[in-house]
Design a protein around this nucleic acid. Structure first.
Length: 660
DNA sequence: ATGGGTCCT
DNA sequence: AGGACCC
């Protein structure tokens, strides 16, 4: 419902201006930094303010090897490969949180241990570990006052989707086992979704696909299907469906390419739950910053109105630039946008602007360098005024050239957006690489090599490491893929700095008892079990929840199975998202089907000893001391824990040198 | 709806 | 410059 019609119905309604996203942005940044601090490879990709994927493959791989299969109950999850004592205890006999998918492949009984069941067991163990890591991270976020949902799976697509299954406040691991039955589980999961729910299939693509399905379905057989309800299964059941068929269906869409999805082939693989896209490395600098305002109900007509609005917008934009593109002491710019873009939505002729973004037009130009000067005594006002007068207003006139009519109204503008983009990044930590001017040493590489020779024991290298050295530590650890996706929920952070209580109240209903229901108690098919404990305070909640979780893990006598894991950790600060539409048989499958052979060609099944190559304890005494390298630049002995900082020190030094 | 973002032609 | 996607 629009605000206008809400006001018509309820004239006394108090409308709170929600246009300032600053508090949300702040919270988002904090939680993002928190998650990022747990990552080893820095693959922590944000989507919007409230979602994150993490690729935790390296952490999981490390911990798989730490696992003592003879005492799973008292397992230790190590969060820092340089400090064995950093981590948490957990019970590896069961999954944390909920599981989607069959329960099978009994690899986990006493005596058999977790990952001796071959590759199936290894992969399942990874998912299991990832589920415990996810819980740990979610609890950390709860300590900050926000609740989360999380999906754990083997790629971003599946992790994101499965994170919806127990959405308000729990996590779900997609237990897809092996190439045979695993695909089957994945396909059952994917198949039940409406087309539009698949990330990467947006409104246009979904409409085209639905049209096709309808055109193919038998005329007489049933009532015309609702296009929105057509599922992946429906579409895949079309006999003539092929990549090239899809290509032609989608060719009318401009460039038929959506987010990473190319053409028919790509869409088809999405529908099958495949997603090769990597979790992208964390970014400290956005690719664009924009501020916009809409004037739908009261379009701007005079140039003076427009000027005033542009001044407002540009003022906040400059502020945003300073908080997002300058270092903390606001001494220097970390990145300078080179391009300024103005977007407007002019009045559309007779009929209303139909869809989203309809009628937006934009114009770009170089961003003048003076905006990076420090505003003088009166702040940035002069800069803003100048930018509007000299650049933005002329751009506006170019965008809206048309006849200032004789009468009153020259323009009718429903939207203004000012954007800076095309960042010129000045990142000291990247200076050795491609960042700035030519001739620097490749500091990063020097350190990598030093690490290699000093820390890694060649006997413990990968089997596939024939002749070549491992290029980087990250790559050494990176060989399997695990993504985590978390989902954080919270109330409105702008209302109240003391928001913890509010938020715990809102996300109250789904706590501890639920986990117990995960596989064992949910024979009724209801994934959400009532909670058995009233919670007065979020902090007590957390621990109760964790304990209940541990108990649940013990109860649900899970078996270790398999999967390449990608845990998609997704955090979500708003709480009005759609929740998984849980028809029970979508969410849980109880059929005991035969175990199928698991035969994934898993490339990295090492002996248990292999771990010593990455645990930073090359003297093998388990305490992690005595390890370090000789700095390739200054020849000092640097303990491992200080290595990153030391490397940064040299990079910075070099960067400053370049400035001279 | 709104006020943001991303990447790909 | 715009279109598709995402929140």
């Amino acid at each position: 419902m629009s605000i206008a019609s809400a006001l018509a119905i309820c004239p006394d309604l108090v409308i709170v201006d929600g246009e300032d996203l600053t508090p949300f942005r702040d919270v988002s940044k904090r939680l993002y930094a928190l998650l990022r601090s747990y990552s080893w490879n820095d693959r922590v990709e944000r989507l919007g303010l409230d979602e994150v994927w993490m690729d935790v493959s390296d952490i999981i791989e490390y911990n798989v090897e730490l696992l003592n299969r003879h005492d799973l109950e008292h397992s230790w999850f190590c969060l820092d490969n340089k400090d064995p004592e950093k981590g948490f205890a957990f019970d590896a006999r069961g999954f944390a949180g909920q599981v989607y998918g069959r329960e099978k492949v009994g690899l986990e009984g006493p005596g058999t241990g977790g990952y001796e069941g071959g590759q199936a067991g290894l992969l399942r163990t990874k998912l299991l570990l990832a589920s415990h890591l996810a819980l740990h991270l979610r609890l950390k976020i709860e300590e900050e006052g926000y609740t989360t949902a999380c999906g754990i799976s083997t790629n971003k697509l599946l992790a994101k989707l499965v994170g919806n299954v127990n959405k308000p406040r729990n996590q779900t691991t997609l237990l897809s086992l092996g190439p045979d039955d695993g695909e089957e589980t994945v396909q059952r999961f994917m198949g039940s979704h409406q087309l539009r729910k698949i990330p990467g299939i947006g409104g246009k693509t979904a409409a085209a696909l639905s049209d096709y399905f309808i055109s193919q379905s038998k005329p007489g057989s049933s009532s015309p299907p609702n296009p929105k309800e057509i599922t992946v299964d429906d579409l895949l059941s079309c006999p003539g469906l092929s990549p090239s068929k899809l290509d032609s269906l989608l060719s009318s869409l401009s460039s038929s390419s959506s987010t990473g999805t190319g053409t028919g082939k790509h869409i088809l693989s999405l529908l099958q739950g495949h997603d090769p896209s990597p979790v992208k490395p964390a970014r400290s600098i956005p690719t664009q910053i924009s501020i916009e305002d809409t004037y739908f109900s009261c379009p701007l007509v005079t140039i003076e109105q427009i000027r005033r609005e542009l001044v407002k917008i540009t003022g906040s934009l400059l502020k945003r630039m300073k908080t997002d593109l300058m270092d903390d002491d606001k001494k220097r710019w970390l990145a300078r946008p080179k391009t300024l873009r103005l977007t407007t939505r002019p009045r559309t002729d007779p009929k209303e602007g139909r869809g989203y973004g309809y009628g937006r037009v934009s114009k770009s130009q170089g961003l003048p360098g003076y905006v990076f000067n420090n505003g003088n005594a009166h702040g940035d006002d002069e800069i803003v005024q100048r930018l509007v007068a000299e650049t933005l207003l002329p751009m506006f006139r170019e965008l809206n050239p048309l006849n200032p009519r004789k009468g009153g109204k020259e323009y009718s503008i429903g939207l203004l957006n000012v954007c800076v983009t095309n960042m010129d990044s000045i990142d000291p930590t990247t200076a050795g690489g491609g960042g700035s001017g030519g001739g620097g040493r490749d500091i990063k590489n020097m350190f990598m090599r030093a690490r290699e020779f000093t820390v890694y024991d060649p006997e413990h290298e990968h089997a596939d490491n024939t002749g070549t050295q491992p290029e980087t530590e990250a790559e050494l650890l990176e060989h399997s893929d695990v993504d985590v996706d978390v989902d954080v929920h919270a109330g409105d952070p702008s209302h109240d700095p003391d928001l913890n209580l509010d938020m715990s109240d809102t996300s109250y209903e789904s706590s501890n008892g639920k986990a117990r229901g995960s596989l064992k108690n949910n024979d009724n098919g209801d994934p959400s079990t009532t909670n058995h404990q009233q919670q007065q305070h979020p902090v007590s909640t957390i621990h109760e929840q964790a304990q209940a979780q541990a108990q649940a893990d013990r109860d649900t006598n899970h078996h270790l199975g398999t999967n390449m894991s990608t845990n998609h950790y997704y955090f979500h600060i708003e709480d009005d998202d759609e929740v998984w539409d849980d028809s029970p048989d979508n969410v849980w499958n109880h059929n005991e089907e035969e175990p199928t052979e698991e035969d994934i060609d898993y490339d990295d099944l090492r002996d248990a000893e292999g771990m010593s190559c990455v645990n930073g304890d090359s003297d093998g005494d388990g305490d992690g001391d005595g390890d370090g390298i000789k700095c390739p630049l200054c020849n000092h002995f640097i303990p491992l824990f200080a290595l990153s900082a030391h490397e940064r020190f040299h990079s910075m030094e070099e960067f400053e040198g370049e400035l001279d």
